[in-house]
Design a binder for these strands. Structure first.
Lengths: 156, 156
DNA sequence: TTCCTTGCAAAATATTTGCACACCT
DNA sequence: AGGTGTGCAAATATTTTGCAAGGAA
């Protein structure tokens, strides 16, 4: 039932001594308003109508800041650009992974068997941390394949 | 105990009606001779001394072909370039995943609890395939974190 | 006022494409 | 011969950086 309330991430900004500027607010808003996995440019295009003097550079830099603060996840679906999603967004399963069509790059979020996944991931994190001395901060679990539409096309 | 014997991938080439050229052979050789995860340019640099007229373009195109044939895996460790490894190489656990240092990009291959991982992955593949109609062709499982050296640096 | 942020322009990087020539089968 | 494969050069696309000006605290 968690969601991104303003107080949560604005607080994080204060903790990190970062400033709460209009571009930053708008970028978080845009990410909170969609279930898409936006690229930097797509974020830019959605902020632009509301704040025309935003620059693409700022979007890149802000997304970077948000990722480092743990507010946003950087995703890679094999098209050549990074994509971003809020870690906690209302109406989204709190923990989920992605199923990606290698052809059209369509992405399905799934949370089936997530308990088992999380349990195994935790166990592995502990084992790998002990064995290799890494401080583990995250994981990527993704399935790749062809979505129904692309499967059909491939048959033709 | 499988390994890349010439007969295996040369056969694959014949099946796909692709030609067995010197650049292609050398590229597979280079990948087979290392346990590193090479980028396209690194492959190019290692082939170049043995075959000076190789071009970087050819390396990109060949790697692409090899990936599509399932002989090579394309990997992404979060530095901006794709990296490649032979799917089957002698002296490597046949199935493994990666633990990546987000700072220095050092990569550790692990195969702990791989039985459990594979079992869960199989189950998920089946469930996702049924639920979303995808033809699933692969998966990415990766842990991210800070290696011992980078952890120490971060403390300073 | 202080110094974090921003935007522009230009740079850096990785990868792809057009095209003429070379080469395998 | 005939189509596949190659290399060069140029084009694309994404992301990063330098720097002067703007703005939050």
């Amino acid at each position: 039932m968690k969601q991104v309330r303003s107080s949560e991430w604005t607080g994080a900004f204060k903790q990190h001594r970062l400033r709460l500027t209009k571009p930053r607010q708008l970028i978080v808003d845009v990410l909170g308003a969609t279930s898409d996995h936006l690229s930097a440019e797509e974020v830019y295009l959605r902020v632009h109508p509301k704040y025309a003097r935003i620059g693409l550079t700022t979007v890149y830099r802000t997304l970077d800041v948000l990722v480092r603060m743990g507010i946003v996840s950087r995703l890679d679906f094999g098209d050549a650009r990074s994509r971003y999603e809020l870690v906690e967004r209302s109406g989204k399963p709190s923990h989920h992974h992605h199923l990606v069509c290698s052809s059209c790059k369509r992405v399905v979020e799934y949370d089936d068997f997530m308990d088992e996944e999380v349990k195994l991931i935790k166990k592995l994190e502990k084992a790998l941390s002990r064995k290799h001395g890494f401080g583990i901060t995250g994981h990527v679990v993704q399935f790749l394949g062809l979505c129904p539409a692309c499967k059909t096309l491939a048959r033709a």
